[in-house]
């Protein structure tokens, strides 16, 4: 079942075409990777889907409804959760408070001025922390966590909204290989069990080919290749503009 369908999406900055006629779909339970060199238009595409940028033209259909140009908050309300390349957690709060706040926001309780947040949604938050594997650090300030754990908190924050669609911008950037693998496996399992669709960008080619169900390759604002990981890896054009001669061959993987 198609969750996200992007059609003819374009965006220019000062006359420079950052994204041009971009189109793709993401199905429920599927992990789709968006890769390409820096400046290829990945972030632009991503930010348009997430609502951080308004597209110049094109449609972004979530379960058939156009969400193009809506604010990030309204897009979230329609069921799109996201993580950021540079972790954006609430650094002054503990891990569980982060998740409690995200749940309270989902429940539209942010104008409540009475009972403290401390006791609110604690069980659900704890369950989410269990799921992403940081339950034992629930009372730690996020600012004091190891980077890999912050990334897990980010994932929990995105899940708190019970999204139909997850946007993950370089979910494993800055992590060690073993940590990458376990996080991506977690993402894949979660997507399959919840029937959520996942679109992610990634620089780590090994992660992409190990975990993505399908791969989209962008260069200079356009999608230049798409398909199963093996097809994409064999594509000469993709090797030319992105993978290079050596990478992507079996010896280049971990």
């Amino acid at each position: 079942m198609t969750v996200l369908a992007v059609e003819g999406l374009s965006k220019s900055f000062d006359g420079v075409r950052a994204a041009q006629n971009v189109g793709f779909t993401v199905n429920a339970g599927e992990l789709v990777a968006l890769i390409g060199p820096n400046g290829a238009g990945k972030s632009t595409t991503f930010n348009m889907v997430g609502g951080q940028l308004k597209p110049d033209s094109g449609r972004i259909l979530l379960d058939g409804n156009d969400i193009a140009g809506l604010s990030p908050r309204l897009i979230l309300r329609r069921g799109v959760g996201r993580t950021f390349q540079i972790a954006q957690s609430f650094l002054s709060m503990t891990v569980i408070e982060n998740v409690q706040l995200a749940i309270a926001a989902r429940e539209r309780e942010t104008m409540r001025m009475g009972a403290p947040l401390r006791g609110l949604h604690a069980d659900e938050a704890q369950t989410l922390l269990d799921k992403v594997g940081v339950a034992d650090q629930a009372e730690t300030l996020v600012a004091h966590l190891a980077y890999a754990d912050i990334k897990r908190v980010e994932f929990a924050l995105a899940l708190a909204a019970r999204p139909r669609m997850l946007l993950m911008d370089e979910p494993t950037a800055g992590m060690a290989p073993a940590e990458r693998k376990s996080l991506m496996t977690l993402v894949a399992t979660t997507a399959k069990t919840n029937g959520a669709a996942v679109l992610f960008t990634e620089h780590d080619v090994a992660s992409v080919f190990a975990h993505a169900d399908r791969v989209l390759v962008m260069a200079r604002g356009e999608i230049i290749a798409r398909g199963a990981p093996d097809e994409v890896r064999a594509d000469p054009l993709v090797r030319e503009v992105y993978l290079g001669r050596s990478a992507g061959t079996p010896g280049g993987q971990r």
Binding site: G50, S71, Q88, F90, L91, L101, A102, T110, A158, A161
Partner: peptide, 15 residues
């Protein structure tokens, strides 16, 4: 406080 810590994240969780 969440909006202060991270405007991006605050909007993205629905604040």
């Amino acid at each position: 406080r969440g909006a202060r810590d991270s405007h991006l994240r605050a909007e993205a969780v629905g604040i």
